[in-house]
Nucleic acid binder design. Structure first.
Lengths: 188, 188
DNA sequence: ATGATAAGTAATCAACTGTTGACTTATATA
DNA sequence: TATATAAGTCAACAGTTGATTACTTATCAT
């Protein structure tokens, strides 16, 4: 039965609910496999409202996921211990189920429709800002290699769920990944 | 019009044609977006034969893609110059349009159905054999980091088509990637 | 030549996709 | 209180998808 009080109308809250549901759904299922009906149900909202407010699924993806891409957490801090700091963060979030924009991007990275959006986002929002923090004339290449390493790390560990560590803990992995990243910061 | 000579029946050739078409289609489109009808059309074969001969789309993927995963080319050669050798190979195939099992795997890496198959393949066919060629007690971790770096490199360069090199050539990229990989071989 | 068997075909199923247009209903202003 | 407008609903479209069924036809051993 429908609620006795027929639910107050509030466009802003509705759009926010759609955005939240979309973020979670895109994060869990990638782009293609994330259905608009599922998102609408999660947001307790009619499907048609997605198109009304965001134009299309692609428009929703743009507003829900792309702005979440914030690599401040990567750049904030001394570059002298960038490697260990970042390695720790990435190792710590292995197995984490909460929304992570990077993983959302990875899960969408094989979708024809999403790829053009991803390409620009990765170049402008991730590689370029990171390259600006590096010294030397190969800054862009080294920034790219840092990003490819981190993308591959998250892809295997969190998307495909591959076993990358052998015995016991992750200390070895953190140390090795940290050293690899730091070498790229320090000009290899 | 149908061919005057109504086409000789040959189960083996038919299956081979399906496998070839499937390889190309999975390579181009990943797992979900690769339709059985498209594969059948490419192979000049009736769709129903896919299910007759391979049981399901998943069965076809197993027979068409997984056996192609051959990392002999990675392990063949002296480990003393593994880094430069492999970096050269990966840089050279950027932009390449021909079938590449690694890229096929990457394009399938976000599909719910394909992930369990990928996980086991990556662990057993790639990471473990590579780890066996490395010395020291962190061999598995370092092999994993080599694989994550190469996976991320191919994902960004060949799937998402990101610009990872700055000015002109790829020499800098090859040198930096090669050094990074070699350091992981040599214990970081 | 005649059956048995394997190979290939055609139609259809049920489920799902994103999107749209016409509709109803609540809310706030005049 | 009447009314314009924004918010939300509903049903349907037109296209997919992988898979199955009953069927026809070619091939080969007897």
């Amino acid at each position: 039965m429908p609620p006795a009080t027929p639910k107050r109308r509030n466009a802003e809250k509705t759009q926010q609910a759609i955005l939240d549901a979309a973020r979670q759904t895109f994060f869990e299922k990638g782009y293609d496999a994330a259905g608009t009906r599922e998102m609408a149900d999660r947001a307790n909202v009619n499907v048609a409202l997605i198109n009304r407010y965001f134009g299309s699924k692609e428009g929703l993806f743009k507003k829900a996921i792309l702005p979440e891409l914030n690599i401040e957490f990567l750049l904030a801090g001394d570059m002298a211990d960038f490697g260990q700091r970042v390695a720790n963060m990435f190792a710590a979030k292995t197995g984490e189920k909460e929304f992570d924009p990077l993983v959302a991007l990875l899960r969408a990275s094989t979708s024809k429709e999403a790829i053009p959006l991803l390409r620009q986002t990765v170049e402008d929002q991730i590689i370029k800002p990171l390259a600006l923090r590096l010294n030397g004339n190969t800054a862009h290449e080294r920034a790219s290699l840092i990003v490819t390493q981190l993308a591959g790390y998250d892809l295997l560990n969190r998307v495909v769920d591959v076993q990358t560590t052998s015995t016991g803990g992750t200390e070895d992995m953190v140390r090795l990944l940290g050293k690899t990243l730091q070498d790229l910061v320090d000009r290899v």
